[in-house]
Amino acid sequence: MSGTMNLTLKVWRQKNKNDKGAFATYQVKDISPDMSFLEMFDVLNEQLISKGETPIAFDHDCREGICGMCSMYINGRPHGPLKGVTTCQLHMRSFHDGDTIVVEPWRAQAFPVIKDLVVDRSSFDRIIASGGFVSVNTGNTKDANNILIGKEDADEAFSAAACIGCGACVAACKNASAMLFVSAKISQLAMLPQGDPERKRRAENMVETMDEEGFGSCTNTGACSAECPKEISLEHIARMNREYFGAKFTSQNVK
């Protein structure tokens, strides 16, 4: 591996949700290319603590790209420059000595800032609570192999279910739309026989909650899918639209 690097970081600092917030500039030295982006932030935070300053708050947990907790907007892109990679799996070898890196939180009305780079994504949970499930109580089941699901359908459902709920799609969208996130769940369950009985209610309820939470409209730009760390396909949005319109045309519960 090549030598270490010195970098300039411009990081969004905001004390709490009521604070206006501003960028602050920091220097970090001797960063190894083998470090992850978050480990570089650990180094910066240690520096700040030793100087008696407040470390930068950022969300992170598994650091293996699966929990969906990390959420930095790096140089104008959610999760940084690489395709199909979360911030925690982004490594410093993707940067160069002398670079200036700008780091912001997710910006969306439905994701208010809690502190610095940490935002509130509980709107996603509320969307799932409104229909992102199969209504089956524990124990009400039959033998798993009694439900046959063709491999293609199972694979397609899995590719939608791979969504980690990080919110990069919303952050990437100029309208802060949550269509990719919502469609991933609707599409997964629409592909499977288990999801069939509730498919109309699900599509209607989840879309309604999405709108209530203040997410924007979809204009089919495709930035969501391009920036998605799990590369969730736009096809799911198409399938969701089909599900939604189908439900609306025949809906029994028009509100």
């Binding site: 089956v136 009400n140 046959l148 491999k151 899995f158």
Partner: peptide
Amino acid sequence: NIIDQCVAQGVPFAREYGGLL
């Protein structure tokens, strides 16, 4: 029972072409 429960919830386990787990 766990496998039955998870399948009923729509957990997309790996499957054979014939549709079995």
